[in-house]
Structure formats: C-alpha cells, structure tokens
Design a protein around this nucleic acid. Sequence first.
DNA 1: TCATAAAATGAAAACGATTTTCATTTGCAA
DNA 2: TTGCAAATGAAAATCGTTTTCATTTTATGA
Lengths: 151, 151
Amino acid sequence: MVDTPGLAAEWLNCLQDSGYKLTRTRRVLVELLASSTRAYGPIELYDAARERCPGLGLVTVYRTLEKLEELSLVQRLHQPDGCHRYLRATQGHQHVMVCSGCGEVEVFSGDNLEPLFHRLADQTGYSIEQHWLQLFGLCPACQAAERQAEA
Amino acid sequence: MVDTPGLAAEWLNCLQDSGYKLTRTRRVLVELLASSTRAYGPIELYDAARERCPGLGLVTVYRTLEKLEELSLVQRLHQPDGCHRYLRATQGHQHVMVCSGCGEVEVFSGDNLEPLFHRLADQTGYSIEQHWLQLFGLCPACQAAERQAEA
DNA sequence: TCATAAAATGAAAACGATTTTCATTTGCAA
DNA sequence: TTGCAAATGAAAATCGTTTTCATTTTATGA
Ligand SMILES: [Mn+2]
Ligand SMILES: [Mn+2]
Ligand SMILES: [Zn+2]
Ligand SMILES: [Zn+2]
C-alpha cells in the first residue's frame, strides 16, 4: 500500500530538489497522479485538473508529465493505439496490466525475467536499454459496461 | 530457420486467398519483408521498395502493412519513440529484442509467462486481450557504430 | 479476347497526439 | 522588494498515419 498523502509531498520535494518550481498547477497534477492507481491519459488528466485550475493549458500537462517521468515519479505506458498513459511509479519500473477501457492498472510481479534478459544479452551481444512487459485487456467493470452497451 | 523463397510465395497465396489482388508493388513489399529478419519502419520499407517500384507511394506501403498484419503475416512492433516497425511473423506472435539503431531483431522464447497470465486473469477478473514483451537495445554492430561516432 | 466490377494506387488533404515558439506571468533566492 | 530563471497558455508547427477521391489495375468469366 502507498501512503498517498505523503506521496504527493514527496514528489513536490523531488521536483523542488531538481530545481523545478512549485506552482498551483503542479500541486494539482501531482496530487491527482500520486493519489491514483489509474494510468491517466493526458486529456483525462487535463480535464480532471481543470476542475481546480480552470485556465490550465494542455501543454502544461504534457510538460509536467515529462518532468515527472524524467524523475521516475511516473511511468509512461504505451498503448496499442499509439497513445500514452501515465502511471505513478511507486516502485520504480513496473510490469503492468492495463484496462483499455478506463486505464485502471494492476501492477504485478512474479515473472522472473532477469536471468533470461542476461542470457540474451550475453548470447547476442546486445546492450539492453529497456524492456516492456505489458498486458492489455478489460477490467471487470469495463467488461460489464461493454455487455450493457451490446444489449 | 525459415524457407525464405517459399515464404514470400506463401504470403502471396495468403493474400490472394483472402480476396486481395497481386500487384507488382505487393510482390516487392512481400519479398522484402518475408526475406528479412529485420523489423522495417514504413519509410525504410518505402525506400527499399522504390528501388524496384519507382513510382511507389508511401500510402501503399502503409496499406500493405495493414493487410499483412491483419493476416498475421507481419507483427507490428511499438517503439519507445511511438513509431512502429514491422517484422515477419514466422511463428505467430513473438517476443522480441529490437535494435533501436537498425531494427535488427532477435526473437526469443524461454519465458514461461502463460501461467502467470492465467493467474492474473483469474485473480483480477481482467480479460486479457494482448500482451507485449519487448526488449530494446543496440545490436553489436550499432554499438560499434556508436563508439565510432563518439570518437 | 473483351467487358466488367471490385480492388489497388498515388496525390493531396486531413488527422491527432505531441512539441515548439514566443510573449507574458510567476516563483523564489538574494 | 528586485531580478532573473523557470513556468505558462495560445497559437502554430511537427510528423507519423489515415482519409478522400479520381484514375489505373487486376481478376473473372462471357
Ligand atoms: Mn521490468
Ligand atoms: Mn506472447
Ligand atoms: Zn476498466
Ligand atoms: Zn543495430
């Protein structure tokens, strides 16, 4: 479990320690991301944040996400449609299952892939820079919603 | 190992069996993709194909890739930069390590992830629609080229 | 071989997520 | 306070990809 209230404060400190300034907008965006298990799309985050920051521009959302990712506070998820979602990175890089409907995320572990990756690097000479293990599907709620829509 | 010459012919049959017509352009694109272990970006494929089809349009490359993917003859790879590459799918869906420099691909297996996926689906109620396991890095040749560039 | 309808093609325009530019505002250290 | 770097929003630009549309090809079968 994650200490959500403390987490936002940590992130703000982290931003400040890195030479970034604290603004009303950043506080709101950080609060939203740090307190949610969902992966937000930029527009979703924009809409949520505008309830508290009416004049907010979408650009600022992108710029803030960029900084949070740079600081490894959020993890960018790539989706089959090519768009992105952003998820709080409470344990660094995570392997996830994402709901294509609502962006809800299940973080999982139990895959023991490191040995495989090392063996691959050894045998092929590749230098591995990053890896993705992501599942895509529908959460129970979105499955139900889909059944509704069909009927 | 893959019977490359026969593979292109198989793909052309597959296209024809699906109601698509055979054109000079398709033969060339199929030949390029079926005979390579590389994952091509659309522009790379376009450039390679234009050597034999000078008037070729980039749209046609996209349209052909779309059909080949639909028939599971190629697999679309997503890259960190958001762009795509297309790899011949000789064994259906594959787990791969891609060189970010040249698109060379190492297909690998030996990860036994199915049980994990089933357990996740059971425990969370998610319906899993697809999954990605992809590594990104540099092949030995591109590592060497990078060292050259630095020096 | 020829006629035909469906499919394929390329040029140009449209799309849409993301990024850049630029003039203005804001945070914060001195 | 002051001064300056950083942050912001509006508008324009990017760029990979898709759509539109008029024209050309392909497969079929009379
Ligand atoms: Mn990992
Ligand atoms: Mn797989
Ligand atoms: Zn959902
Ligand atoms: Zn390479």
